[in-house]
Every structure is written in C-alpha cells, then in structure tokens.
Design a binder for these strands. Structure first.
Lengths: 343, 343
DNA sequence: ATGCTTTATGTTAACGTACTCATAACCTGG
DNA sequence: CCAGGTTATGAGTACGTTAACATAAAGCAT
C-alpha cells in the first residue's frame, strides 16, 4: 500500500507534490511557479501551470501559514452583527483589511450570554488570526483585570481606556460636545436628553458629554430619559417631554432613530420642529430610510476608525507596540431640525 | 547556534514542544492534555497545564489544520457589507456558524469593480475555509459558465438557479406573489411598481413577481419605476405617480425604505394612505428607524436562510452532494397601509 | 581550454499538530 | 510468579509549504 495514495480518487486535496509528479518536476519548482518567482524556464512554467489547472490545485492555507507564521486575517468578535454600531465596525474594518490584502475572521458571540474579554480572547486565539479585535458595546465584567495574550495584537473597540490594551473608537463623548455647542450657539439652554439603554458604552459616553456640557455652563440638568435606540422608544420619550416639559427648547437624542421618533411625537403633539423645539441626533443613519432627512446630527468616519483598529491589531513591522487610546472625532452636520429657540 | 532557539525571547510563538520541555514530558503528552484526552496521569496533567499557563501556550491553528485537513471556518464573499441584504446574510450565517462551532472568514470584494465568480472563488480558495459562500447581488458575468472548485462546497446566494452549484435565497419572487395576492383580495387592480436598480438580482425577481401576478389576471401593466432602494428615490417615484397617475389604487415598492418614501410623497400630495392609495414594501426593515411603523410588508426568515446556506456550504458527513436550488418563503405582514380601494 | 557568472532545478529542513504504534510500568487473577 | 491486561508515556511520521543551500548546465571573458 502506497503511503501517499495516488490522487486519482480525489480523496485528498491536490498538493504541490501531486502537481510536481504530473509535470515531471520537483515540488520546489511548483512552489516557484505558484508564487511567480523568477528563474523558471518558460517551457517548464507552462507545463506546471497546465498540470495545476488540470488537477485543480489549490494552495494549502494551512501549509503556507504554518511555514511563514502569518495568517493574513484579523479576528473580529462582536456580540450582535446587526446592531448599527457593530455593522459599521465590520464595514470599516473590512475595507481596511481589503486594502492590506487581509480577510476578517468573524465570530459572533452569543447575543444573550454575557461575554467576558477573556472568553472572547480565548476563542479568537484558536483561529487563524494575526490580531484580535473585540467590540465591547457593553462593559465586560473583566475589563479592568483583562490582560491581552502576549504575542498577538489586541484592540478593543470601546470608549473606555485600558492600561494594557489599545482601545479605539469614534468619539462618543466628543460628539455630544459638538452638538451641545451647536445648540448653545443658537441660544438653547434647556436641552433634554433621550439616551440609549444605560448598559451601552456608547450611551454612557454620549450622556456624559451632554451632562458635562451643561455643567460647564452651570445649567441645571433635567433628568435624562432612557430609550432602547429604536424610533418607537424615541417617540415615547418625545411624547413624554411634549406633555410634561414646556420649558425645554431642544432635545438631544443619543441616536438618529430615536431623534426621528421624538420629532414625530413632538409634531403629533402640536409642537413644530425646529420652530418650537430643536432636535439633534447622532450617527447620520437615516438617509436610506427616511425621505428628505433634515436631522442635524454627527457623522463618524467609520472607515477611518476601521483603519485605525486594523493597523493597531495587525501592526506593521516597526510599530512601537505602545498601547494607546484613539478617539476619532465626528463631524457636525447641520440640517434643518435646529434653529434659534423661540423667545 | 541552536536550531530551535530557546523561546525565552518570545520571538517565536510557544509551541507544544516548548511546553513539553518546560514540563519535562514529550510533545505528545502535551497534545493529550491540550485536547483533554484520557490516559494522562493527574499529576502530569497539572504539571503540563501549569507550563502552558506560564508560557502562554496558544495552539497553532495552522498546525492543527494542516494535520487534520479542516478549518472550521466558512468563507463568505460579499461586495458591500452595509447593504441590507448582505448584512442580514452575514447575520444569518454567523449564527448558523456559531451553532456549529465555526467562524466566518469574510472577504469584501471591491464595491466598485465588477466581480466574477471565478475571481471570488479564487480568492476565497486561498483562505482557511471548508466551504465557500458567495453573495451574488448582481448577476456575475461568468454566472452561466462558472464551475465550482472540486472538493470544496460552494453555495451562491442568489435567486438564479445554476446547474452545477447549489443556490439558496429568500424567495424574492414569491414575496411579490404574497403581496399582490393580498392587494388583489382587497380589490386592487391598478398596482404600480417602484423597483430597485435594474442590475439588482433581488429587484429583477421582485419585479418579475409583480409582472407575472398582473399578467396572470390579465391586468394591463403600467410602466414600472426604478429607484435605488433609498427612501428619497421612493419619494421621487411616489411624487411622480401622485402627479401623473390618478387611476392607481396601490403601490408596490420593492423595499420598505422606498415604500416609506413613497408614502411621504403621497401624503405631501394630498393623497391618504391607505384610504386613497395602498402601499406595500418588502423586508420589514423599518421598525428601528420609524416610529409607529404601519407598513404592510413581507418578512424573511434570515436565520433560516443562513442555516440553509451554511449547511450546504459545509455539508455534514453523509450529505448527498447534489446541487439544489432552495427558496425560502417570506411571510406576509399586514399592517395599516393597505385597505380596500376607494370606489 | 580555464575559471567565473548566470540560470534552472533539485534536496533538505523546518514550521506545529495529532495519529499510530511501541514500550514500559503497573495491576490482577490463577 | 507468570500470563494477560490496563495505564502512562514516548518515538516516529505525515500533513503542505517555502527558505536556504546545493548542484548542474550553459554562457562568456580571458
């Protein structure tokens, strides 16, 4: 019984040795042809390529990775692919990865179970990844104590800074300052806040930016409302405010969807936007869904965030290796849901 | 100079050999401990585990894959991650993969370049994948002639059937029949169509369903309108119809976003929905973005689609290997944008 | 012709893992 | 006290690739 079965049956994938045998050359010559290296006779090259074609040769990722120790892929761990934040993260990282010829190895953690960074890291480390990216949309229980695996770049996408891990995120605190300053400049002071669920890291920082803006100007802060990011929750909050707060002149909703709901509620309650109440959101996510989107909002450059995340997870040769905290500023987009307050 | 450098420097990843040397056992014993195999002395096991811990051992994905010829990952190739269809595909497949302990290797093709199935397959084949899934949202130039790589499961997510490749998709033709039948039952006949861009496969089948429904009832078909899936394009189409067609009683928009835009346009032009005109969409995608979503639409079970795609791309042992064409039916969701036509 | 470079090709080793087989130590029952 | 088993461990090998080195042939200047 031959140790290496002749591969006519197709039971085993076609390797370079199979091609070499078919073309009557050494396996190393096949490798040279496969990688387009020089010093191969043109006639030989064609013979080898013909054999590759005929046998359906597919280079072994495992063999290659084992050999040169790199996977050309970056691991991405998120808890729910469909959440707007995660989706845009995937998109940004995917295009950054493509620019560098890398793939993304995506693992979705259970949407329901709580997930620890240690657990996520453990799972990702068993996969073909040169770096690990973890989206932490809610604070992990082991965030403070977490130590990244040595020898593999790790980046957490979150606003919280960490002493031993590089963190990257859009500036979910700064976006609030942009919006609040815009409202202050128009003359608003009574600015209510409709936030997302309080476990959300994005929410925590957006709310902190709202609160700090008011405190810095010594404006008394009314109770923030809590939604669930959906337009319906924004509607409910907006209705509540329309009914209970006739002193407010502006609403800051922590995302565009809730802002859109809030606007609908205000109008249903006889309040005009922006004449009676100004409304702002964050994300610039409505365009596809709403005609004539007029919402003043903040847009983040998600591709830049993707690039930053990627570069730090898979550092180029000669990178410093110091852990940093990168916050990418958003850009204020003024449309027509904000105006000077009524006098 | 030692051939295998002692790994104090940490230049090379820690291998089982390193752990074995530290624990004073053979590499094979380390393998047994790592995989939880029996016949290891409890004391030895603990010694090995301690060494693993101390050195930070991470099992080599490459070595393991090379050894047993499987990657436990499925390749997914899409052209644009953010498109609603692709996003939901990723989500569905991700959860199916998780159920089977697999990861997803995601490759985003250039959004601008036209992409061929051969090119996509070639790129995916060089990655650590046990199966290949290609999202074909527009007809690839080589669709007819395409032959999948032998020895690796291939699935194309599209409505077009293929003689040599399994194709899976939500039933973008059947959804039209569901909606049209609903409108017919209410008494509508003059039903206009606002489609997506004509290169979109989903659009082609949704439109075909609209056309065939009318033809089957011998209803004269008015010219379909073409949008770009966005609410604004739906608004423009809706406005055009409001101004030019006073005989229509219903609009079928090929997705919810355009339907939402069309509704806004109708109302801006003094037409009531559903009293004057009924409107339906597809996807059930508005809930997060619009408060009090009342749109009659079709919802697809995207997780089921993800499971089907996954199962056929990475067949279990004992699968037939026959190529099939699977179309997963949607479900009609009747809300309040449809009613009997005015008499 | 002789030595030197260039070109084409082959040989060997190494990457990390897990399977198969071998071996040694330890039991257990007669 | 030995045959027959069980348990713990190690040795060897193969998976497919590429880098480094080796060899052989051919061209070319002296």
């Amino acid at each position: 019984m031959a140790r290496r079965p002749s591969n006519d049956t197709g039971s085993r994938p076609v390797s370079m040795v199979d091609v070499a045998r078919a073309a009557g050359v050494s396996q190393q010559t096949v490798s040279r042809v496969a990688n387009g290296l020089p010093n191969v006779n043109e006639q030989t090259r064609q013979r080898v390529q013909a054999a590759m074609q005929e046998l359906g040769f597919r280079p072994s990722y495992a063999g290659r990775s084992l050999r040169d120790g790199r996977y050309h892929s970056v691991g991405l761990c998120v808890n729910d692919v469909t959440k707007f934040g995660n989706l845009t993260m995937i998109d940004g990282i995917a295009s950054a990865a493509r620019e560098r010829g890398c793939a993304i190895t995506l693992v979705e953690m259970s949407k329901t179970e709580e997930f620890s960074l240690a657990e996520a890291t453990r799972r990702m480390a068993a996969l073909p990844v040169d770096g690990i990216i973890i989206g932490m949309s809610r604070l992990a229980p082991d965030f403070e104590t977490f130590a990244p695996l040595p020898g593999i770049g790790t980046v957490i996408v979150t606003m919280y800074a960490h002493p031993r891990v590089t963190t990257v995120d859009s500036d979910h605190y700064g976006c609030s300052l942009l919006l609040m300053d815009h409202l202050f400049e128009l003359g608003h002071e009574q600015i209510r806040f409709i936030g997302g669920p309080s476990f959300s890291v994005d929410e925590q920082f957006r709310r902190a930016g709202w609160r700090d803006s008011l405190e810095r100007r010594h404006i008394k802060m009314a109770e923030p409302l809590e939604g669930d990011w959906s337009a319906n929750s924004g509607y409910e909050a907006g209705r509540y405010l329309a009914e209970h707060d006739r002193t407010m002149t502006a609403i800051y909703a922590a995302n565009d969807q809730m802002a859109n709901g809030a606007i609908a509620a205000l109008r249903d309650n006889g309040l005009r936007v922006p004449e009676d109440v100004s409304v702002v959101g964050v994300d610039d996510s409505l365009d596809d869904f709403v005609a004539h989107n007029e919402l003043t909002t903040v847009r983040f450059d998600l591709h830049q965030r993707g690039r930053e995340v990627f570069e730090h997870a898979v550092p180029k040769a000669g990178a410093t290796g110091k852990t940093v905290a990168i916050r990418i500023p958003g850009k204020l987009i003024v449309r027509h849901t904000t105006a000077e307050p009524r006098v």
